[in-house]
């Protein structure tokens, strides 16, 4: 999934730990093969290549994923949408040329996005795109979806404490830190990564952060936020992150992106459908040395 995966198992016998790490490795690789858009032989790639023309049979494992994505799309009122990739691409290509896409090109691209255009046939287990040119991208979903069964397997194997990190943006914990009653996970200040803007106390829970940054991870400039709002086809403004803690890794990951593109007034209603979730939005102020402040928060 184009990132690194870390797992910390405190007080674990290294022989057992190695076996669990090997399980994690093979589980994550198989999930990646299932969901990767970059692997031209993956089931997702087959849909992207052919579902615009005719209904394509979806393998059971992917069917389950798409059904879950559809349910989250409904629960987030369309804010979570796995068909947005063409919009991301449009903005990326324009920004690389130091341009902003025209209103017309945005409207055109929006015609090939939107999960309402996915035609599922529950009986035949097929999917057809209503419009040619549509693309599925599970980027904002896959990490959480891969983490959940992993944590379940570790629990079944008797692991009482564990810390999983998927590219640092998706964290899942089992039990608590060995020296405390929870795992204290901080949201790093993206300009001073050694300090935390806010700390979540996680216990058998997951945390996911989405956001926009003025630079990429290697310190190079990044000119636009990569989070595009499905409401208007435009990137969200400013440098901001949304972190969501939830009992489910999938819920946390879905919500971190969805809440970021949802107006504040509607966020609470979405969260009402996700019991146990809490969220923090952090904004970095460009005219004040990028000092972070908590813009919005939700706790149950």
């Amino acid at each position: 999934m184009g990132t690194r995966f870390s797992v910390v198992l405190p007080g674990m016998d290294s022989f057992v730990g190695e076996a669990l790490a090997e399980f994690a490795d093979s589980h994550l690789r198989s999930q990646e093969r299932l969901m990767s858009r970059f692997d031209s032989f993956s089931p997702i790639s087959e849909l992207n290549q052919r579902a615009g023309e005719e209904p394509i049979t979806v393998p059971p494992a992917l069917w389950k994923i798409l059904a879950l994505c559809h349910s989250h799309w409904q629960r987030t009122r369309g804010a979570f949408d796995i068909t947005q990739w063409p919009l991301n691409q449009l903005w990326r290509e324009n920004v690389q040329r130091s341009e902003v896409p025209s209103d017309e090109s945005i409207q055109q691209t929006r015609r090939i996005t939107g999960m309402e255009q996915l035609q599922f046939d529950d009986t035949a287990r097929t999917l057809k795109f209503a419009t040619e040119g549509m693309m599925l991208d599970l980027g904002g979903f896959g990490k959480g979806y891969a983490l959940e069964p992993l944590a379940r397997h570790f629990r079944e194997q008797g692991v009482a404490r564990a810390f999983f990190s998927f590219g640092e943006s998706s964290v899942t914990v089992i039990g608590s830190h060995p020296h405390g009653s929870a795992w204290p996970v901080g949201i790093a200040n993206m300009f001073h990564p050694e300090t935390a803007v806010h700390t979540f106390q996680l216990r058998d829970a997951s945390l996911s952060t989405s956001g926009t940054a003025p630079f990429n991870q290697t310190g190079g400039p990044q000119n636009f936020g990569h989070i595009i709002s499905p409401r208007d086809g435009r990137p969200i403004e400013g440098y901001r992150t949304m972190s969501v803690a939830a009992p489910s890794a999938v819920d946390a990951e879905v919500l971190s992106t969805a809440l970021l593109v949802t107006p504040e007034a509607e966020r609470t209603e979405i969260l009402a459908g996700y019991p146990g979730a809490s969220a923090i939005e952090i904004v970095y102020h460009p005219y004040n040395q990028f000092t972070p402040s908590i813009q919005w928060r939700y706790e149950t």
Binding site: V8, G167, E168, V185, S208
Partner: peptide, 30 residues
């Protein structure tokens, strides 16, 4: 390993309970 993970492991080994500043937009390799 990821810097935050190193800090977490060091903390556990030293018996320290401290915040691990780790959450952020996803890390991508060079």
């Amino acid at each position: 390993p990821a810097p935050g993970i190193v800090q977490l492991i060091n903390g556990i080994e030293r018996g320290v309970f401290e915040t691990i500043p780790i959450g952020g937009p996803s890390w991508v390799p060079d």
